[in-house]
Each structure stands twice: as structure tokens, then as C-alpha cells.
Amino acid sequence: MIKGHNKTADMSKRLQDMLAGARDSAKGSYVIRAVGVRKVYKMGDSETHALRGVTLDVHRGEYMSIMGPSGSGKSTFFNMIGGLDKPTAGKVYIDQVDIAQLDAYELAWLRCRKVGYIFQMFNLIQVMSCIENVMLPMSFAGKDSEEARERALEILDLVGLRSRALHKPAEMSGGQQQRVAIARALANSPDILLADEPTGNLDLKTGEEIIDLFSHLRDTLGITIITATHDLKMLKASDRIVWIEDGRLARVSTPEEANIHLEEVH
């Protein structure tokens, strides 16, 4: 019964194996492919072209940041590759599946198991405790509650919050809440983590912890991480930075190249 100090390490090792195992079964080096994606919003008579043909491949296990001023179509693109919105023209493939072809049930399934979402405002369900928040996507996936509870504890352990499992979000700091949100996003072993300004509401130090956690998740679980962010630290930690401007893909660069650009801006 007593495993001593190794228990925690065992647990996260087991979890990593579990997550990695699920990932190996899905082959293909691109996890997301966007081909000539256009999006037009119609407001009465006027049309707004949010995206004017974006083509981009996201590698499996990549840490990618999307940059762009507000109104650039960054959010639209972000929603599109996360399966939250369908393109007006062009194709978005998530794991080789054209999301435009999916019905409501299949889209819900995709959001539940393929993609984990992380929000700027954490978006934890306030009326639920941490562990219940983490268990929610699993109950949506139809997992029975005993199994879900056990797994939720393991994931909370992974983000270092096992001891606070029964606390309500309101009783926790922003950084802790965001880590619970990350645990929740990991609940159904997704291939992709989609994070919208994940450090936007956190102070510098806590933000760094979250960035470290992301890097750790990518390295250990091989999970694909896509963030929309303005955080310099976050940009530096990513493998690629994608710049969206005026509905088009402006450029794709590594953090080293991007640093030059950023310095130019300042």
C-alpha cells in the first residue's frame, strides 16, 4: 500500500505512458493542415474578410505561437484550427479530417478528445471544485466517474495541484487556476493544446511557470501546443512563430529571427 516518495513520480510516469500511447496510434507528421482558408463575416450588406486565404501546416509535437495585432484575423484563424469555427472557403484538416464535413456530434467529439482548450480568463466552472472541473470533459466523453476521478487526480498531480483537488477555483490564485485549466484540457489526452493568451492574466513569474509547464508537456507528452499570445517569454519558448496580418499569413519565423523583429518594434 505504501509506496513512499516514489508514488508521485510513478503516477506521472504512468500518465505519460498513457498519453504517449494514445498519441502513437495516430500517425501523420502534420496534426493540423490549413489550406487556403478564407472567412467572410456578413453583417447586413457589408462583408468583412477576416481571413483571405491562409495556408499553414502544424507539425505534430510542435510548440507554435500565433502573433498578430487585433483585427488581423488572428482570433479567427485560431478558432478555425481549433475546430471552433468553419471556414467560408478552403479546408482545415485536424488529424486528416476535414472539419467542414463534421456534424454537431462529431465536432463535439473532436473538441472533447482531440483538442484541449486553455483560456485567458481560465474559464473554470466556478460552481465546481478543481477535480470536478478536470472530470467534466471526461464525463462528456462518457467515462465512468470512478475512473475519471482517479485520472483527474493523476493529471492534477502532473500540474502540481493534487493537494488542492477539492478547492473551488475562487479560492485559488490565477496561476493555480490556469494550471487546473491545463489539467482540464489534458483530461481526454488531446493531440492539440489550444491556448488563447494563457499568460495574459498572470503576473510575470506565474506566467513563466505556465510557459515552463507547456514546454514540459510538449517534451514529455509530445503534445502539439498552439498559443495566441503577445507574451515575449512565450514567443521565445515556442518552436515557430506565425504572424497573421490583415487576414494573411505575413511570415513564419523561429524565435531567434523574431527577436530581431521585436527589437525593431521597440
Binding site: 495516430a26 488529424d95 486528416q96 479530417v97 476535414d98 464535413q101 463534421l102 456534424d103 456530434y105 462529431e106 463535439a108 467529439w109 473532436l110 472533447c112 478528445r113 464525463s139 462528456f140 466523453a141 462518457g142
Partner: peptide, 16 residues
């Protein structure tokens, strides 16, 4: 719905 994608995408279950 094409049968090709049914391998990778399932249908979301209804919650009890």
C-alpha cells in the same frame, strides 16, 4: 459523411 473519417472521428455520446 464519408466512411473514411469514421475511423478517426467518433460521435459524441449523450450524457446521463
Amino acid at each position: 459523411m464519408g466512411s473514411r473519417m469514421e475511423r478517426t472521428i467518433g460521435k459524441q455520446v449523450k450524457l446521463p
